[in-house]
Nucleic acid binder design. Sequence first.
DNA 1: AAGTTGACCCCGA
DNA 2: TTCGGGGCCAACT
Length: 114
Amino acid sequence: MSQAGKNVDFFEQVWQVVREIPPGRVTSYGAIAKALGAAKSSRMVGYAMNASHAAPVDVPAHRVVNRNGVLTGKHHFTDINTMQRRLESEGVEVIDDRVQRFDELFWDPLTELG
DNA sequence: AAGTTGACCCCGA
DNA sequence: TTCGGGGCCAACT
């Protein structure tokens, strides 16, 4: 399956988890990293998001925030208001770049996926 | 080839 | 409680 020297890319794994995030829910970079077994590579998750533009399919990167529930990556979207606007479109209340009721809307891949 | 960066997280003062 | 620094791994220059 895996071609020589070309196993599953770390980015692709991240994207796959992000795609599993249901609408109206949010998760954190650390949670995704932990789900992939790389809790220490939480930074790489964010880096993978930066490359999400090259993703073969749509990646709801707006549903990924930091562990504080803050839209840290909003600045990387096409427009600064894109991330917040998309979240609000899904019913997620965002005030001052922070997801309200983050603990309730939090979607843990480890728990939900298994 | 080596150094720097980064959509983060954790801990100590 | 708020503030600061270190760690971590991979990609980028």
